[in-house]
Design a protein around this nucleic acid. Structure first.
Lengths: 112, 112
DNA sequence: AATCTATATAACAAATTTGTTATGTGAATA
DNA sequence: TATTCACATAACAAATTTGTTATATAGATT
């Protein structure tokens, strides 16, 4: 439990992962959409997502060209997820992310 | 809030700080007691405690030779503190710490 | 005042983490 | 089947973190 708790906290102990966590609460997203919103390179997002997946926080599914990532309704960690949501409420960086999220069109991103 | 959340999670994203957090729920403790229980050097414990103090999680007070560290009843983070307690419940490392805690006598530790 | 003693801090090495660029891979399309 | 596209992974540098040993400091004690 000590190891598990440490790992779980490490997942959330990173600004960009918190931002990803925040985005995925709105809807499923593919890697390039997240990279666009966060203004970070795609490989960086990929690695964050892999960590989040390994920890059981997110899942992924194929969707044609894209891989959708989504939040999993984990059982034990539900409480903390709820807590984080309330704690992050009102943050300006996250607000800006949400605005950029609205403008995202995955068919027009990436290698185009 | 994003920065603050990241920092708070970093505090708990370390095994030894989780162990210290667990110990301080029992009672105030001085540095050398904690170092003894965790079997880690005193400077290492000192730095962990400084971080925990900077984050507002613990406070300290002078007590003769010793400096007592204690958990502060922080306002906003109360919920997460409660959550962590329940999540760590039953861990074996922490149990062993508790046993060692019982045997600690600060007047017989350190430079003797 | 001189000396202890618990703790803080400095200095350093090892390990971990994060971002980047470059490149591989596998599914979808033409 | 050849190509394209989103994503994964490798390789690397920079930054951060953690533990250690050595040393400084400040409050007690003599």
């Amino acid at each position: 439990m000590l190891d598990k708790t440490e790992k779980l906290f490490k997942i959330f102990a990173d600004k960009n992962r918190l931002r990803i966590f925040n985005l995925l609460q709105q809807r499923k997203m593919c890697v390039c959409e997240i990279a666009f919103v966060l203004q970070v390179t795609q490989p960086s997002i990929s690695r964050h997502l892999r960590k989040m997946k390994e920890s059981g926080l997110v899942g992924d599914e194929q969707d044609g060209f894209w891989t959708n990532y989504f939040l999993k309704n984990s059982s034990g960690e539900n409480n903390i997820v709820f807590w984080i949501k309330s704690f992050l409420k009102g943050d300006n960086v996250l607000k800006a992310d949400m605005n950029r999220l609205k403008k995202v069109d995955r068919t027009k991103l990436c290698c185009r």
